[in-house]
Write a protein that binds this DNA or RNA. Structure first.
Lengths: 216, 216
DNA sequence: CACAGTACAAGACGACTGTCATATTTGCAA
DNA sequence: TTGCAAATATGACAGTCGTCTTGTACTGTG
């Protein structure tokens, strides 16, 4: 009697490996690191523990890969914005960074876990840091272009503004994890407009866009 | 042969219960929810599993209490700022919110975990949301006073600015979890000055304070 | 075809988990 | 003092965990 095996073999090893990482990522997003085990990952991925162990030396390595997975996911999405520049590029970046979709929301669910893990695991801290650094630089580039082409107020210091935007984005994403209302389209668009408005006018009065949410 | 018991009995039940919650909180901060077990909590607290089970129906209840614990910790600290108002009060709030101390850093380590848990556990989402809402309102109050007394630029919309500040703070805290350099005194002071500067002048040029960190 | 190495599955094991049940001790009321 | 309830400790159990080991199927190369 032949036992069930993993989806045939036409697809490459790389794909199978990625499929396992993706499965682990989804599990981490929904249940945290406590809710993920080699067995659960294997079951959900439709394979055996042995296969997971074949591709990853141990659970820790799988977890590290899951962290990298969500970080590269964003970078791959924004690579499709290559044709944009300046504020239009920034707006595109924000739409791929803020939890406009369930996919992005899951990415932040995972990142929230690794914010904590970074304190105990140097590798994870480094990977996460590198990733955010990359995002930061990309935002900075967009702002430099925007500033050079008069799209934003010339008094705005682009580097510091880039920091502010990235940290603001992280805060928004974390808040969205706690409140379903905040992750609706309207409030998210409002945040984007707050950022764009501030940059264009160069002052905080531009924060007043649309109807403010009475509740945090 | 008499077996070792918990620290005598002079202290009230409330104190013992809180001691257990505090222990659990520290464990969660360092190892995440995966690294906390009833046994570890009992060992670290210097008591038996039975006692933990006596005060908390199950692990989930203990975890919920740990979440509330870190949130009330902040509120108790800022209650000592009662005499301040306006921008001075805001500055005090920021010093008790940003990870200037290891204690506060641990609070954020715990919060980062519960940002994720909020997606799966309604009780935790509600508790965390309520807590952040309270912080938001307190910042808002400080800004209203500051605005009414001419401490900040009159064009700054205080409600939206309060949102911005809170979300910015969350972002800063999360970034600090990943980078030891960012949680040094200097960079943190710089963030505080960025916020205060923006409010006073009402525009983003005030973001340029001190030496910018070249790296995110 | 043969054979080697990889891809995959399953067994087994010891450690750890949450929780229920069962002691034992303590503190207070009668 | 007795007695009873709360406080605290320990035993036991059925799961689950990570991972080491072994077994089987596949696939490409000679």
């Amino acid at each position: 009697m032949t036992s069930m095996r993993f989806p045939k073999a036409a697809d490459t090893k790389e794909m199978r490996r990625n499929h396992i990482i993706d499965t682990a990522t989804r599990l981490i997003a929904r249940n945290g690191l406590e809710g993920v085990s080699v067995r659960k990952v294997a079951d959900m991925a439709g394979c055996s523990r042995g296969l997971v162990e074949h591709y990853f030396r141990n659970k820790a390595e799988l977890v590290v890969e899951a962290n990298r997975w969500v970080n590269t996911a964003y970078l791959e999405r924004v690579s499709s914005l290559r044709k944009l520049s300046g504020l239009a590029l920034l707006e595109g970046q924000l739409h791929n960074l803020l939890p406009f979709t369930d996919e992005i929301l899951d990415e932040w669910r995972v990142r929230s876990i690794f914010f904590n893990r970074g304190s105990a695991d140097q590798q994870i801290a480094k990977d996460s840091n590198d990733s955010f650094n990359q995002v930061y630089v990309e935002i900075w580039d967009a702002l430099k272009y925007a500033s050079a082409h008069g799209e934003i107020d010339p008094s705005v210091p682009v580097q510091e503004a880039s920091e502010l935007i990235l940290l603001f984005v992280i805060g928004i994403a974390m808040a969205c994890l706690l409140s379903e209302r905040l992750r609706e389209r309207r409030p998210l668009e409002r945040r984007v407009n707050m950022i764009l408005g501030m940059l264009k006018s160069g002052d905080l009065s531009a924060l007043r866009v649309g109807d403010p949410s009475v509740e945090y």
